[in-house]
Simulated assay, not measured.
Amino acid sequence: MDIRQLQYFLAIVDRGGYNRAAAALYVSQPSLSQAVRALEHDLGSELFHRIGRRAVLTEAGRALIEPARAAVRSLETARASVAAVHELRTGRLDVASMPSQAVEPLTTLIRIYSHRYPGVVVSVKAVFTAREVIDAVRTGTVELGLLACAGPLPEKEVSTLALKQQRFVLLVPPDDPLAGRFSVAREELSGRRLIVGQRGTGMRAYVDSLHEQGVAFEVATEIEHRVALLPLVLAGVGLAVVTESWRNLAHRAGARVLNIEPATALNIGLASRRGALSPAASAFLATARAEPGGC
């Protein structure tokens, strides 16, 4: 067994099949298959069921995922530690982020980090819930993750650095009767059409809680693609409850941003795996700690 075989195995898992994995790795499909067969021979067990063009994990394959990620991540950390001697001139940092936190504070953090370490490539993985962030960090899919939650930040499975809170705000088009206001009471959302995200997110949980409190809004659109929120608001499809990380972007696009009263906020944190981190991840954490007010 060697690290290349584990990397090939994980590429098939992450890409969903041999052909996509081979394309991502820039190797031929027969070479990839041969490496996986050799790994299976060393382990004495099949890792995938071949069903047509699909590769379905066996029980042994599922058991290998987490230790394989740990092994690959440990090698990457070792290589990065050597590269740190050269002041992080090169390298890669994998970060998972929920959509709103990818707007802010991730944008600011990457801007500062990239200015200090221009040779390090920051790769951002999109996830939609705090649970997905924790799982991605815990299993080694990424080293760091930005998450938001209504309650205390998780500390059981990962380490978290508390950043600032983000309150909920309302996005409205410039011609809406509310557009000239600074704030809106949550009861005033009754009778309005809202664009909402998918279940499992903090934003959706907040909107659902309003409904439970008797705010009788209508759901205009339920959407996972946050990039469509602003266009839908500006097109008059509905209003959107988001976190204030959207404030500057929404203003530049021409939407109006109103505080929702009474104020309710999410706690924002930067999660890291327990144990040694690569120099690139350690430097990113240091960047976050150094920002006034947690970014």
Rank of each mutant, 00 (worst) to 15 (best):
Ile3Lys: 11
Leu6His: 04
Ala11Leu: 02
Arg15Asp: 09
Gly16Phe: 11
Gly17Tyr: 08
Asn19Arg: 15
Asn19Pro: 10
Arg20Tyr: 05
Ala23Asn: 13
Leu25Asn: 02
Tyr26Gln: 15
Tyr26Ala: 14
Ser31Asp: 13
Ser31Trp: 11
Leu32Met: 06
Ala35Ile: 02
Ala35Cys: 03
Asp42Met: 00
Asp42Leu: 00
Ser45Glu: 01
Leu47Ala: 00
His49Asn: 04
Ile51Trp: 04
Arg54Met: 12
Glu59Cys: 01
Ala60Met: 00
Gly61Arg: 00
Arg62Gln: 03
Ile65Leu: 08
Pro67Ser: 08
Ala68Pro: 01
Arg69Gly: 02
Val72Gly: 05
Ser74Tyr: 12
Ala78Glu: 15
Arg89Asp: 15
Arg89Val: 13
Thr90Asn: 14
Gly91Lys: 06
Gly91Ala: 14
Met98Cys: 04
Gln101His: 07
Val103Asn: 01
Glu104Cys: 01
Pro105Trp: 07
Leu106Glu: 03
Leu106Ala: 10
Thr107Met: 04
Arg111Tyr: 09
Ile112Pro: 03
Ser114Tyr: 07
Ser114Gly: 14
His115Asn: 14
Tyr117Gln: 07
Pro118Met: 10
Pro118Leu: 12
Gly119Gln: 09
Val124Tyr: 02
Lys125Tyr: 11
Ala126Glu: 07
Val127Tyr: 00
Thr129Asn: 00
Ala130Ser: 07
Val133Leu: 03
Asp135Gly: 02
Arg138Gln: 14
Thr139Asn: 12
Thr141Ala: 09
Leu146Pro: 01
Leu147Gly: 00
Ala148Gln: 07
Gly151Glu: 14
Pro154Gln: 05
Glu155Arg: 14
Ser159Thr: 12
Leu170Glu: 06
Pro174Ser: 09
Pro174Tyr: 08
Asp176Met: 13
Glu187Gly: 14
Arg193Cys: 12
Arg193Ala: 15
Arg193Tyr: 14
Leu194Trp: 08
Ile195Gly: 08
Val196Met: 05
Gln198Arg: 06
Arg199Gly: 07
Gly202Gln: 03
Arg204Gln: 05
Val207Gly: 06
Ser209Leu: 05
Glu212Trp: 08
Val215Gly: 10
Ala216Trp: 10
Glu218Ala: 15
Glu218Val: 13
Thr221Phe: 15
His225Arg: 15
Arg226Gln: 14
Ala228Pro: 06
Leu229Ser: 11
Leu230Gly: 06
Ala235Tyr: 09
Thr243Asn: 08
Glu244Phe: 06
Leu249Ile: 12
Gly254Thr: 09
Ala255Trp: 05
Pro262Asn: 10
Ala263Leu: 14
Leu270Gly: 01
Ala271Phe: 02
Ser272Glu: 13
Arg273Phe: 08
Phe284His: 02
Phe284Ile: 04
Arg289Trp: 05
Glu291Phe: 11
Gly293Asn: 04
Cys295Asn: 11
